[in-house]
Design a protein around this nucleic acid. Structure first.
Length: 512
RNA sequence: GCGGAAGUAGCUCAAUUGGUAGAGCUCCAGCCUUCCAAGCUGGAGGUUGCGGGUUCGAGACCCGUCUUCCGCUCCA
């Protein structure tokens, strides 16, 4: 276990040392749960995004991609249910250190009183032969008292929430003498409101009506454009709309490096299907997405499905693809059957018909949606954590190597003149100039060759082309492979073909 | 947000009961010209996270604050 912890710490420090991830605003002591991608991180992240985009959009003739804005009309979030679902009043018990939702505590208390009424009814039903339940509920003094109590609690709570009066919510909990189920005490903190969406102002003049949110998921940008894309792209169901982009959530606690950030990037695809066929597509995408992840070669046993038993407000089936991170199996991608929840609500709130007319059956319907949603930053972390290895070499020394899939490496080829004279740097530059139009290439002249190899290993460069004196004599160079550290001598005119074969993205895509 | 631990050079870490902040690696400039991080010379780099306090004197002690890690909580 401490091994895994050490490994995770290594991943974090390696990320910083080699320009993958920096903490945001580090010179100002950082900003909690916000991170920046450095020169190598940005390349790796871009490559992961490209691989996803090409696998989803380029390889499927019925999937197109869009890039919707982060700002959306405020009604969007009412329709999606986020305004309600993202506002929780929370309260902590100081003795047990447990946190509760204040509304749940009060609801549970009300449920207990309802229980008492039910018991009274049961007792009375046994006692009287011609039991009139309706009359009993209206007349029995004890029951009436309970019912009044429930009503007064509910109306008081409702008013407090509407007024945003959190002190009153706390006072209700105190007045009802609600105790913590764990500690049994009434030692409560103040009630705090956790708004999980970021609000900001649209327009330079501040005005209450101009409050808008930074999107908490990219999906809604797809839903509100459903009709635009369907019509202008002449899309026939089933079809998909893909999108990558930033989303923002005000997490209560953000932890584990870039696993849970306040600002993060999603890669989502919403697949629109005929109602009744959604489970078929759900199964298809479950398998297709798992296959995609496994094509990265991190090991099949590091992935598993986790089926959701408790479903979100919009779903009729849901599962996660979990990955074995250094801190355990955690969600990497979610696959949800979202029914027609989103389109139906947007139809209702906007008053616009969001339907598909099927010319064959002559019917018009609101499509069902199957969503695949990957966290790009989580995928990045999974990739880096799996790829980072410390190896013992035969000569007894150690090397740190990033065992990245070749096509994803930030730098594909390093060109290294063995010595910095005799025309070797010039030849190296010629090779760089040939490759740079297709690949990220680096030329390094400083330090001993061994040092340069190790530096390239540490950022995961799959191929090193070394120029020695023989290269000048007979026009051949050596290509050294990162993982095996073996070298082969090849003629100059064979370089491009070899690089294409070993590091291009298409070689990875063809395996899908 | 609560509890625990930590924060000293780019990185890893020293600094006796409170007494002038150091080392290795890295980096930079040269020399050397070497196929797997280890040669030579010189150099740069610090308001000890930040702000207060105690003291003749604080990296160390006290208070506050920020950040990170671990646990709890939350996770559409």
């Amino acid at each position: 276990m401490s091994n895994a912890e050490d490994h995770f710490k290594n991943v974090i420090s390696h990320s910083k040392e080699y320009g993958f991830i920096f903490q945001s605003s580090e010179i100002y002591d950082g900003l909690s749960a916000v991170y920046d991608y450095g020169q190598n991180g940005a390349e790796l992240k871009k490559n992961l995004r490209d691989y996803w985009w090409k696998a989803m959009v380029q390889l499927h003739d019925n999937i197109v991609g869009i890039d919707a804005a982060i700002f959306m009309h405020p009604t969007t979030w009412k329709a999606s249910g986020h305004v309600d679902a993202f506002n929780d009043p929370l309260i902590d018990n100081k003795d047990s250190k447990k946190r509760y939702r204040a509304d749940v505590l009060i609801e549970e208390h009300v449920a207990k009183i309802e229980d008492k009424i039910r018991k009274e009814v049961e007792k009375a039903a046994k006692r009287f032969e011609n039991f009139d339940q309706k009359l009993f509920l209206q007349t029995n003094p004890r029951v009436v008292e309970y019912a009044e109590k429930i009503n007064s609690i509910n109306s008081r709570f409702k008013k407090a929430m509407e007024d945003g009066n959190l002190d009153e919510v706390k006072q209700i909990i105190l007045d009802l003498e609600i105790v913590c189920p764990i500690s049994g005490t009434r030692n409560w903190t103040d009630v705090r409101q956790f708004n999980l969406m970021f609000a900001t102002q649209l327009g330079s003049v501040s005005d209450e009506s101009s409050t808008i949110y930074l999107r908490p998921e990219t999906a809604q940008g797809i839903f509100v454009n459903f009709l635009n894309v369907q019509k202008t792209g002449r899309m026939k169901i089933p079809f998909g709309i893909a999108q990558t982009g930033k989303a923002f959530r005000n997490e209560i606690v953000a932890r584990q490096f870039i696993f849970r950030m306040r600002e993060f990037e999603q890669m989502e695809m919403q697949y629109f299907v005929k109602p009744g066929t959604e489970m078929e597509s759900y199964e298809y995408w479950k398998n297709a997405r798992m296959r995609w992840h496994q094509s990265l070669g991190f090991g099949e046993n590091r992935y598993r499905f986790h089926n959701h038993l408790k479903l979100a407000h919009y779903a009729n089936a849901a599962c996660d693809i979990e990955f074995e991170f250094p801190f355990g199996f955690k969600e990497l991608e979610g696959i949800h059957s979202r029914t027609d929840f989103d389109l139906k609500n947007h139809e209702e709130f906007s008053g616009k018909k969001l339907r598909f007319f099927d010319p064959e059956t002559k019917e018009s319907y609101i499509p069902y949606v199957v969503e695949t949603s990957v966290g790009l930053d989580r995928l990045f972390l999974a990739t880096l954590a799996t790829a980072l290895k410390t190896e013992k070499i035969e000569d007894g020394s150690e090397r740190t190597v990033l065992n990245l899939p070749h096509a994803l490496a930030p730098v594909k080829v390093a060109v290294l003149p063995l010595v910095n004279k005799d025309g070797l740097p010039e030849l190296a530059q010629k090779i760089v100039d040939e490759l740079k139009f297709d690949y990220q290439v680096q030329c390094e002249e400083k330090d001993t060759i061994g040092k340069r190899y190790r530096r390239q290993d540490a950022i995961g460069t799959p191929l090193c082309i070394t120029i020695d004196h023989q290269a000048i004599e007979d026009g051949t160079v050596t290509i050294r492979e990162r993982d095996s550290m073996t070298q082969e001598r090849v003629p100059l005119n064979a370089i491009k073909k070899i690089v294409d074969e070993r590091v291009s993205l298409s070689s990875l895509l063809k395996k899908l």
